[in-house]
Amino acid sequence: MNVLEKEVNQEETQKHTMTKLAIICSKGSLDMAYPGLILANAARMCGVEATLFFTFWGLDIVNKKKIDHLHLTFVGNPSVPVPAMIAGLPGMEGIATTMMKREMEKLDIPSIREMLEILDDAGAEMYGCQMAMDMFKLEKDDLVPQVKEIITAMDFMDLAADAQIIFI
């Protein structure tokens, strides 16, 4: 590749390079927690700024009491490989969660708690939603220390002004 081609390529790369990603995490089930955290981590590994905003049930992901007990949701999930009647039986979600965690351990996928530590070390910024905190009667101390601040939706707009936004 000659120098000119390289310059052209660099220009193209710059044109398509994302510089900032903001992810809104609004769900607290295990299967909805991972995607946001993995994407934020991928962003940081690529040198993209990453901001995570935890709101509504998404606060469970950063809630000290709940972080280690997130589980799968079966009801209303058409991808579950068992009939809805059986999927809704007590204990089913617990069994499936245990099975999934075992598989993830085999693949060396970090726990949610460890994912948050990795994200913090990687320089991702995490925020809790003021309104949801009030609704669930939570204080900042109820959240893991990686959460930097409790902010409002309008604060989030400022933080995400020049970012690509993903809602999960």
Binding site: A42, R44, M45, C46, G47, V48, A122
Partner: peptide, 12 residues
Amino acid sequence: IYLLFPKGPGKL
């Protein structure tokens, strides 16, 4: 690692 490669260690 991020201090050494602040612009994206995964790629760099």
